[in-house]
Design a protein around this nucleic acid. Sequence first.
DNA 1: GAAATAGTGTCTCTTAGACACTATTTC
DNA 2: GAAATAGTGTCTAAGAGACACTATTTC
Lengths: 227, 227
Amino acid sequence: MSPRTAHTRPSARVAPSIDVVILAPSGRSLMVLLERAPAKSRERWQLPWRPLKPDETIDEGAAKLARKTLGRTSTLVEQVAAFGDGKRHPSGGELSVAFLALIDAETGEAFEGEASWHAVDDLPPLPPRQRGMLEGVVASLRARLDQGPIAFHLLPQTFTLTQLQAIYELLLGRRLHKASFRRSLHAAWLVEPTDEWRTEGRGRPAQLFRYAPKKRRGGRRGVRFGV
Amino acid sequence: MSPRTAHTRPSARVAPSIDVVILAPSGRSLMVLLERAPAKSRERWQLPWRPLKPDETIDEGAAKLARKTLGRTSTLVEQVAAFGDGKRHPSGGELSVAFLALIDAETGEAFEGEASWHAVDDLPPLPPRQRGMLEGVVASLRARLDQGPIAFHLLPQTFTLTQLQAIYELLLGRRLHKASFRRSLHAAWLVEPTDEWRTEGRGRPAQLFRYAPKKRRGGRRGVRFGV
DNA sequence: GAAATAGTGTCTCTTAGACACTATTTC
DNA sequence: GAAATAGTGTCTAAGAGACACTATTTC
């Protein structure tokens, strides 16, 4: 049922790989960090990956990989899913574990290294399993947007409400109503104002906010049946 | 940071394991299917598992394992997450992939085999990694309840609305309002009535419904900020 | 003053939940 | 008729979206 490439070596046991999807917002796009693939590869780009070493946990391996790629400790590294669908992966192994790391726009723009940013809507060819992993990770990110404070990982410590709304619009793929957005945000007690204001070209300056969840209101909305 | 058991053999590469969490509703509890562990084990019970074989995909492996355990093809087998947290697993390996299978109550009650049902709220000791896997799978199930028609996999083909509501209450862990539940269900066009009615002891007979999603209304509620 | 961006007040419509009711069965 | 369960009508309150407005900046 699942496709299988011809060149897998059936009896050689290859270590599972750890692959990391590092995302940052940029303008109206979500960007992913890709590395140049080795010269012999079919594709020119790949997700950063490494084999799972025998005496480390996958979380340790992923943290090391993200750190090596980014040159710093990232905000969030979180396991998403395992992929062992028979599609081709640079490791030659059967199993890969996908991790997600989120970087804020400022840090993303400042990044300089071996890897470079690509819009997730307009990607170069990737090894097939990595392509699936990237799509799976982004889909899971979108699905979990309302389950936790994911969006704040894509912003600097302080931010304007317009910036925050732009992140939600980016991840949800649709425009949001400004007044409604701010009302729900206020009701959720997730952010608090700082006493700083940011002037950006023309227009009234915007107040800066920080992420500071206060209480958890009993979020008892009714049952929402599957989309 | 993560605990590591002393008995892992650092250089022996052990195949990743595939573990299945098979769930069925029973009364007011979610039940999971556990197998007797081999005599030498620390715990007496374990989740059904098997090593990933070199030339199969994880989905194939999980499907075979579920079929072997249940003696039939299960309704839903779906990968949830990988666990490689350094905790002990019967396989001795570092990495395990968790799968979820959902069985309806009638099929669950009819099941007879090597394994037996245990309430997820009242479990015997399990190998530590499997304990984490089970909790992770159940948490993910609850979190994804409103993303897809999960609840219907826990019911027979036709069911009463009271049964359906009981499944949602079981998974959400709270009581729901009858009239509201039915109104939202009607608005979501997920079920259609059959012309059968079920009499169960006293009380007015209940109409049987079947899962028959009609249209997808633009489920455009506002942003819900993380709980 | 014009243009641009930030932020708010009010109205409407949808819907979750409470409450109370009717309907149909067994005992 | 009593008890039990199924199913519905109406009211209220919360909140999402539309619209229009005010506020503060640069040019």
